[in-house]
Amino acid sequence: MGNNLLKGKRGIIFGALNDMSIAWKVAERAVEEGAIITLSNTPLAVRMGTTNELAEKLNAKLIPADATSVTDLEQVFEQSMEVLGGKIDFVLHSIGMSPNVRKKRPYDDLDYDMLLTTLDISAISFHKMMQVAKKMDAINDYGSVVALSYMAAQRTVFGYNDMADAKSMLESIARSFGYIYGRERNVRVNTISQSPTVTTAGSGVKGMDGLLDFSERMSPLGNATAADCADYCVVMFSDLTRKVTMQNLLHDGGFSSMAMSYRAMEQYNKSFEEFKDENGKIIYG
């Protein structure tokens, strides 16, 4: 049951593919909290996914668009303001894709054309989105723009590949554009650095199962789920966070502050059991 945190607010949710998507959960929670929204994803994702079902369920207009296209983004904001009856109060950027990851190209053997595609889809689209919105004056004063990030933007994570570069750029864009948008229009811009989460996109990351288990053992509160992230996004869209901007907000159960946990150390020690001698001493190879 909602608390009307977003009552009377209008929003655009980019990136909902299916019910495993964080954006899907955010859309559901935003409407539950009283918002009216539109949904947007690429025409291909709309055909392949089940976003139409979400749009019908939430009574939300679905606007197919390529977020790397300025023209398409202009249509999304124009149609959204028309359908929703006014300027936008919040926007979620939940967009990320790496052809190098999909093609299993390692970080030291990247295809550079594919790297440019990764950066355009996963980060530069965020800049385009805000630049279009600002030029169209499409977002209300103290509106909130949120993009989903991951701690691989600051720390090396095995298998995350060139998506780490994209997330670093994404967070930099949030700070740089956040300053300008805040100064000129009172619009706040933040990123949320989410726990590893089981999504269709996340499943393509090498070693995802191990990463999920490791972060669960390391985090004192455990991994934050997609539903948990949706709750956090709702708070960031609400008037309760009117003075929060240009921040990368860590939402990972405490993982980012840990060096070693008891549970992770226990598992680490168990892995050596078969390599101990008769006196219990570890035999190093």
Rank of each mutant, 00 (worst) to 15 (best):
I180Q: 10
R242P: 02
K134R: 14
E216V: 01
S122G: 11
I13Q: 00
S203P: 03
Q79H: 13
L119M: 15
Y284S: 12
S257C: 03
S40T: 15
R10A: 12
G210L: 06
P99V: 00
Q154H: 11
P106G: 00
T225K: 07
G253V: 07
D252R: 04
K243S: 11
G178C: 09
A224I: 01
I139W: 07
L170I: 06
N223R: 14
Q75V: 09
D209V: 05
N59G: 15
S215G: 02
V31A: 02
I121Y: 00
N269Q: 13
E33F: 08
A123I: 05
G202D: 05
D113R: 08
G8Q: 12
D89L: 12
N140T: 12
L212C: 05
G182F: 11
R10H: 14
V70G: 02
M130P: 05
K134G: 03
G202L: 06
L170C: 06
A174P: 04
D120H: 01
T199N: 04
N52V: 05
E184I: 03
D277L: 07
M48E: 12
Q247D: 13
G207E: 13
F126E: 06
I139K: 04
I37W: 05
T38D: 02
K281E: 15
F237G: 01
D137L: 04
A166E: 01
V189T: 07
V26E: 01
E273P: 00
K7C: 06
T245M: 06
L84H: 09
V187T: 05
K104R: 15
C229P: 00
D66N: 15
S215V: 13
T245P: 01
Y112F: 15
D19F: 04
R175I: 13
S261G: 10
N140A: 13
M136N: 01
M169W: 03
S219E: 09
S257T: 08
G210H: 02
D277Q: 06
G34Q: 09
Y179Q: 12
A23N: 07
S215E: 13
R105I: 00
E82N: 13
V132S: 08
T225E: 11
M208K: 08
F77H: 08
G159T: 03
L249R: 02
K276P: 00
M1L: 06
V157G: 02
L148E: 02
L17H: 13
T241W: 09
C233Y: 04
G143L: 04
K57Y: 01
E184R: 08
I22V: 15
G96Y: 11
L73F: 07
S215I: 09
N18Q: 08
I13T: 00
G285T: 09
Q247S: 15
L62A: 10
S256I: 12
Q75C: 06
Q154F: 06
M129N: 04
A224M: 12
K128H: 14
S168C: 11
F275I: 03
I22F: 10
A16L: 12
E56N: 13
Y232D: 00
D252A: 03
L73S: 05
S122K: 11
E273A: 14
V235M: 14
N18I: 08
T51V: 15
